[in-house]
Amino acid sequence: MALLEVDNLDVRFPLRHGEIQAVRDLSFTLERGERLGIVGESGAGKSVLGFSLVNLLAAPGRIIGGSIRFEGRELIGLPEHRWRHLRGRRIAMIFQDPRATLNPVLTIGAQMIETVRAHRRLGGRSARAMVLRTLEQVRIDDPESRLAQYPHELSGGLCQRVVIAIALLLDPDIIVADEPTTSLDVTIQADIVNLLLTLCQQRSISLILISHDLGVVNQLTHRLMIMYAGAIVEQGPTRQLLNDPQHPYTQALINALPEMTPPRQPLQQLPGAMPSLSAVPTGCAFHPRCPYRLDALGQPRQVCIDTPPDFTDVADTQVACHVVRELIATTQDSMPFDEETT
């Protein structure tokens, strides 16, 4: 049994002018100690997925279908008082902007000790000792004096370390990290990534890393899911997926990186933009932008417009694409999507 199992999750935001389908029929599993990356552009539904996993969806967002099981227990529909035992202690979350996460009117010490004492029956002194130990583990120098400081007195990198320390305080099984390094400078970012990696390895914490940065994801994760318009289009081992992407969207995403084109040459751009989640295209959500939407005769592929694609296995990755499936079926060859098909 996997540590976390998500099946056919559906999250919607009913609004006055229509419904937003933020997560559509999404399934994945997470093993103990596994680090999973979720990559997509803004508006792909990655953060909503992250919030659903810790039951922090903002109204009017609602999980309307599917199941989330943690150690076999169903989490959907769990009452809030049960969630209070789970969230923070078993499943912790790190948000993008550390300054917005920390309470500006409480000292670092006050908010960390509060967290400990909300979950553990500890006296002030032992809670404080526990906080100091954790601050040392995230390599904060002079933790004693940090306890008395307010978030605004710390730099962005230090704030993010404090947030990571709070997530680690209660020794969680899973950390859901939503863009943990996006607001940091690149030199600090490298340091935080190394820190997260070491801590997860040492304590065999499972990590769900939500990011748009393929470099960070490559460094931190074993497995990768690519999201587009609320659904997974491709998932597989990180290394393999980045080196040999199968889905046309993943290919376009990687090809658009400046590193993939010689300096001062036009980048390979993907026309258009992510569709609004209130008007997701029929069939394959990517079909209006897909370079393979026309067949060899220049006719639109009807199947891409009509039917949402199922996953096809290609080596260790799963790809949701009709064109890939057809190619596999016709060639019987495990080399789908060669340049010749273009």
């Binding site: 030199t187 990534v193 470099g215």
Partner: peptide, 22 residues
């Protein structure tokens, strides 16, 4: 230091050296 701390997506788990301290 700046060039070394770049995240690379083409090297698997390439070592990245950040800068210590602020």
């Amino acid at each position: 230091a700046l060039l070394e701390s770049r995240p690379r997506f083409d090297d698997a788990h390439a070592a990245r050296h950040g800068l210590r301290g602020e």
